[in-house]
């Protein structure tokens, strides 16, 4: 840590900080989906990472089609939408077939969705093979720009950040400024009364869950721009995403953003100065430590049960 000059350290912090921002964007997208599912409905979806992988594989498929028709420049926007739709539909079906039977048993949901994640992983492996695959990115996503000669900021990182910002705003509008969000919050607050005033609570559950999965799909599409996708890609992010949601305070959107930022930056900067595994260990230990002192997370005042 002491072999660098001040200017070098400044550059390292900017560049590692930026690589942290790519991680932050993916974590934030993952955590937004979880914040909707876990924060609002209290459902533990251990298969959330696999929904992300689903979105990523959808994007890869789109890129293969795009390459064969030579339309690589445009496909990505459609791929994001498709990733959302595919993950949304699968999430809808999963809610219908599995989750809705288990709302009263949150710990059992955890086990059932873990089973689901195993099945999805093996499905990916059977269809796409055990090797990692990556999408062919359009030219405008490649390369980097250099504000000063020593600083190198990759464009895909900027793109993912913008995407995460757009989705965050979208989720905010959906949850707090739309009729759907109103119904959703009403159902979470008081299911019986919500039903009494004519809200179809079962439908709300299904759409909420599917929406969370759809956002995970978008996270997957974003993920393809910074790394390649394998069958177990999702499972690498699942603990981190849960940590983000719990650390931020389960029901708080602002908390989710803040904690995703903090965790991603801490991990990325620590990984530069320590080994990569120790950086991760240090980050997770700090989070677990803080959660033990302050179990309700950063941005929530409600006592946890």
């Amino acid at each position: 840590m002491f072999d660098y000059s001040m200017a070098e350290i400044g550059n390292i912090v900017v560049m590692q900080g930026f690589s942290g921002i790519s991680l932050f964007s993916v974590l934030l997208l993952m955590a937004l989906g979880l914040a909707v599912i876990f924060g609002q409905m209290g459902v533990i979806n251990m298969a959330h990472g696999e929904f992300m992988a689903l979105g990523a594989y959808t994007t890869v498929l789109f890129s293969q089609v795009a390459v064969s028709y030579d339309i690589v420049s445009y496909y990505f926007i459609f791929a994001i939408v498709a990733a959302f739709i595919v993950a949304f539909i699968v999430g809808y079906l999963v809610e219908y077939g599995l989750i809705r039977h288990l709302y009263k048993r949150p710990l059992d949901t955890l086990l059932a969705t873990w089973g689901l994640s195993l099945i999805m992983q093996q499905t990916f492996r059977s269809i796409f093979g055990a090797k990692e695959v990556s999408a062919t990115l359009p030219d405008w996503l490649l390369g980097s720009f250099q504000p000063t000669p020593d600083i190198d900021i990759p464009i895909n990182g900027v793109f993912v950040l913008v995407l995460a910002a757009v989705v965050t705003v979208g989720v905010y509008i959906f949850m707090f400024r739309s009729r759907w969000g109103l119904r959703m919050r009403a159902t979470v607050q008081n299911r019986i009364m919500a039903g009494a005033v004519g809200i179809n609570t079962k439908k709300v559950d299904r759409v909420t869950f599917a929406l969370g999965c759809g956002i995970a799909g978008v996270a997957g599409a974003a993920f393809t721009t910074i790394a390649s996708t394998g069958p177990t890609t999702g499972s690498l992010y699942i603990v981190d995403s849960f940590m983000v949601v719990v650390f931020g305070g389960a029901a708080s959107l602002l908390g989710t953003i803040a904690s995703a930022f903090g965790i991603a930056q801490a991990q990325s900067i620590l990984q530069f100065f320590m080994t990569s595994s120790m950086g991760k260990v240090a980050t997770l230990m700090v989070i677990v430590g803080i959660l033990m002192m302050r179990p309700e997370g950063l941005f929530a005042s409600k006592l946890r049960k």
Binding site: P106, L107, F242, S277, P295
Partner: peptide, 25 residues
């Protein structure tokens, strides 16, 4: 601090992850 249920499950899981990364690292 009355942390229980799913939070306990998630945090114990994170501790298991920490320990396994630590041992590998």
């Amino acid at each position: 601090r009355r942390v229980g249920g799913v939070y306990f499950a998630i945090i114990t899981q994170a501790i298991a992850l920490i320990l396994s990364i630590l041992i590998v690292g």
